[in-house]
């Protein structure tokens, strides 16, 4: 359950999650990384490593 006491915000350390979420350029980097690895990179690898057809 949430803390019912109002915390003294100035004194409190900003949580790691909030600092990470506020880091716009970190998000930009991660966003690019995920799509270029999982979609584009993996996709290119899939296409370029297809074997030649034997046409049985």
């Amino acid at each position: 359950m949430p803390d019912p006491v109002k915390p003294d915000e100035a004194a409190e350390q900003v949580p790691l999650g909030q600092r990470l979420f506020d880091n716009v350029f970190l998000l930009l980097g991660l966003g690019l990384l995920v799509v270029f690895v999982l979609y584009t990179g993996w996709g290119l690898w899939e296409i370029l490593t297809l074997p030649q057809a034997t046409l049985p």
Binding site: P2, P7, E9, A10, E12, V14, G17, Q18, F21
Partner: peptide
């Protein structure tokens, strides 16, 4: 206060990394 009463147009002040209802 664990909940917010501001709109999405305002900057949340201080710490907002808090558990949800």
């Amino acid at each position: 206060m664990h909940t917010e009463t501001h709109t999405g147009l305002e900057s949340p002040k201080g710490i907002w990394w808090k558990p949800a209802h």
